[in-house]
Design a protein around this nucleic acid. Structure first.
Length: 288
DNA sequence: CGATTAACCTGGAAGC
DNA sequence: TGCTTCCAGGTTAATC
């Protein structure tokens, strides 16, 4: 489900409930998601205060008072919902999202004590998501973040850095941008959209995206991600923010999911092909 | 070393 | 209506 803008939308939805709250009961309804939960997961969270809720690429990071960091990845179908007034009696759960998902896929329930008690429910039908606990000191070097590329909406992401990361790569630019070592947080949708905005063919060799093309691409990656974050992400199929609200950036797609429809710039039909096992959408007239 | 593919899972949509 | 096939926002282990 989620690329950077969707994960950021989730982060913003969870932050008011999670920041400065304390973990109470942690309920695991199975022993694994994509990977097993780490040893003693529930015990290590219990009693911990959440000092920050951050995002790195497509990962959510809860910094804990215990010196550890709770790492959460939503995979393809993960979602969080918040249940306020948990434990306040029957029928009192007045903010359960209407997009809560099938309860049979509710795999984790965090009970949090902050201003009142809330339950944070993690639902994930496909179970491609996962959670991990890592010492805060080891965050950068841990297996999830070692080698991860720059944060595209951060201050240190530059065209020169993008160009350097694409140099000596023979794969198509589409594949290179899906690789989280090039830039963090891009997925299939926003790679297609950024390449369209930058007028670069997804089939072009990554290494040939340099100079003015790299500058254009750098600029458009930032612009499409900013626009999508501002729109609350894209709601395809089932993405919903924590409060059940839907993003609306899907209405602004220029190419993604528009195979055969006319390019809004030149009128030529949008083409669709498969790269790296994923659908690519692009305009062969506008994108070179 | 880098590039490509299959695999992990379930559910919804499309095709017959 | 029911069965089958394909496809989906991500990552990673295995293979070339």
């Amino acid at each position: 489900m989620p690329e950077l803008p969707e994960v950021e939308t989730v982060r913003r939805g969870l932050e008011p409930f999670m920041a400065w709250a304390r973990f109470g009961k942690v309920e695991l309804r199975r022993k694994d998601l994509r990977f097993p939960f780490p040893e003693g997961f529930a015990d290590r969270l219990n009693g911990a205060r959440i000092e920050s809720l951050a995002r790195r690429g497509k990962y959510l990071l809860a910094g804990l008072s215990t010196g550890e960091c709770l790492i959460m990845h939503l995979g393809m179908s993960g979602r969080f919902t918040v249940k306020e007034d948990a434990g306040a009696g029957a029928g009192a759960a007045n903010s359960v999202s209407e997009h809560a998902g099938d309860p049979k896929h509710d795999h984790v329930v965090f009970s949090l004590e902050g201003k009142g008690i809330v339950e944070i429910i993690y639902n994930d039908p496909r179970r491609f998501g996962f959670m991990d606990l890592v010492s805060t000191d080891d965050l950068e070097s841990c297996r999830h973040f070692k080698g991860m590329g720059p944060e595209p909406l951060g201050n240190d992401f530059t065209a020169a850095m993008l160009s350097a990361n694409l140099k000596r790569r023979s794969a198509p630019i589409k594949a290179a941008l899906l690789d989280q070592r090039t830039v963090a947080g891009l997925g299939n949708i926003y790679v297609c959209e950024a390449l369209y905005r930058a007028r670069i063919s997804p089939k072009r060799k990554a290494a040939s995206v340099a100079g003015v093309r790299a500058e254009r691409l750098h600029h458009e990656i930032i612009s499409v991600l900013r626009d999508a974050v501002d729109a609350g992400g894209s709601s395809l199929r089932d993405f919903a923010s924590v409060d059940g609200g839907l993003g609306y950036f899907q209405h602004e797609f220029e190419v993604y999911g528009r195979g055969g429809e006319p390019c809004r710039n030149c009128g030529a039909p949008i083409k669709q092909l498969v790269q790296s096992g994923r659908s690519t959408f692009y305009c062969s007239r506008c994108q070179r």
